[in-house]
Design a protein around this nucleic acid. Structure first.
Lengths: 136, 136
DNA sequence: CTTGAGCTTCCCACAGTGGCAAGCTTGATA
DNA sequence: TATCAAGCTTGCCACTGTGGGAAGCTCAAG
């Protein structure tokens, strides 16, 4: 199967497949005499694994670790679990940060008339600092 | 005040202040004869505005809009409000995505023994796709 | 006058993805 | 068989926002 087919079937763009190869995330695929990359079902399996890991927000670096654990029959599930928990932590941190931002913004927006006049608590908030008293 | 002072007092690194100037987010500051950038209280005010907008997650592009509204005495608060609401939307979308990722991962992690043995539901989940039945 | 801190510009890096261009291959059709 | 479109190749540039470093100038204090 050529790269276009592999892209369609894995959900990863051809561009990205080449990129993943270039950074060593996946092994260099086989090539035809003309130099076309060819992909086996096994390769496809790996690409799908990557696709799903990406969709859970793992970084390419973490995915590298996950792949090597996946392919290592002697792995300890504890190692995988640690990676996953670590990522959950990061997700929670990010979620918390974004939620705080949103809540501050919501407060500001609620106070804003949103009319034709220039008076605007949102701008005042940015000026004075919503977190001015609460440090930064 | 030199750029170093401005950086300390605004919380934006000197590096970034120069960058913001280079992309036109802020006006080019005054210079001494020797070519050193100098910043007034007014400039500092602007930098702090940017700092706070950044801390609420606004993109530099949006901050450009916010700045011009801020400096325009004839703005309509409705315009500011729209920008803010738009950003809240984006934050909510992101929060939702990350939360979904986290929840899927939590489910996988719960099923994993996390011991010395290779059997690992997390890897199975990545293989088969946690969202395999639920589309992607 | 020397020294060290601070400033200048310019280039490189990161993660992850997209786009474009020049040139070759492949397969089908006229 | 000649040709044409679609698909492949590599390579370079873009984005966002930030940091690092180098080479060289300036300023203030000793």
């Amino acid at each position: 199967m050529n790269i276009g087919q592999a892209a369609k079937q894995s959900g990863i763009s051809a561009k990205m497949i080449r990129h993943y190869e270039s950074i060593g995330l996946i092994h260099s695929s086989a090539r035809t005499d003309a130099g076309y990359r060819t992909y086996s079902q096994n390769d496809l399996h790996t690409l799908r694994f990557i696709k799903r890991a990406r969709s859970l927000g793992f970084s390419l670096e973490s995915i590298g670790h996950l792949l090597s654990l996946w392919q290592n029959q002697e792995r300890a599930s504890a190692d995988v679990k640690m990676l996953a928990q670590d990522h959950i932590q990061q997700l929670n941190t990010k979620i918390r940060e974004l939620t705080e931002m949103r809540d501050v913004l919501l407060t500001l927006v609620e106070g804003c008339q949103g009319n034709h006049r220039p008076e605007c608590p949102i701008l005042h908030g940015l000026e004075a600092g919503p977190n001015c008293s609460a440090a930064s």
